[in-house]
Design a protein around this nucleic acid. Structure first.
Lengths: 110, 110
DNA sequence: TCGACATATCACCACACAATGATATGTAAC
DNA sequence: GTTACATATCATTGTGTGGTGATATGTCGA
């Protein structure tokens, strides 16, 4: 853990954007097209503040973009490669060579 | 956060494998070819128990495979798509449309 | 300006998990 | 068996961060 600007740290932050089920649910919604916070809340079942927090996180990480439209904010994926990356991970998780069967926590002390 | 077996949870776990700088460093080493724990320790500067813990995590997540060879254990990436996924994230982080500039923590208050 | 709605921020709690140092297991040479 | 080396596990600590409920900001219509 040396400095903050090592590429490996930036990449870790990028992946952290994807490493939470709530954020993944949001990203899945946005893969289907732009959506407002209330849309996302309705589909995912997340609480409004929770969704808003995760959206801020995703926006700060550069994964999503938000644009005010009237009283709504329309969020969308910032880059088509995000969809590509998620599709690739879909393959890894669900594909023929299935990974992540039992993935215990790092600190599993059992 | 409903059940454990929702695909979104599996995917979150997969990405969690990538979301730590230490694990990313290890994976970067393994992208260059198989390596033993001591190799990884030498290159990354991680402590031996720490490297071993992360390797266990990566192995349990299915991202790496370890094979005993004499007194050493030779670790390698379990699937070429892992390299592909990392290359894609390299692009996202370092490419022309650079992401993750400032990505603060989810819980940043302030 | 006021009320209604959409979104963002705040303060707090609880837990996950990364790092460390010590120690245990395992493997090979003597 | 015993020593030396390679790796794995243990126990502990500290911090990051996800969730919630309350509240603030912002936007529009009347």
């Amino acid at each position: 853990m040396l400095v903050e600007t090592r590429p490996v740290n930036l990449q870790a932050k990028l992946f952290r954007g994807f490493s939470d089920p709530s954020r993944l649910s949001i990203l899945e919604v946005l893969r289907g097209g732009p959506a407002s916070v209330s849309d996302i809340v309705a589909v995912t079942g997340l609480s409004q503040p929770n969704a808003s927090n995760h959206l801020r996180c995703l926006a700060e990480c550069g994964l999503v973009l938000g644009e005010q439209q009237g009283r709504f904010v329309r969020y969308r994926l910032s880059d088509p490669r995000i969809d590509k990356l998620m599709a690739l991970s879909d393959e890894l998780v669900a594909g023929p060579a299935r990974l992540v069967d039992s993935c215990a926590n790092y600190g599993a002390r059992g």
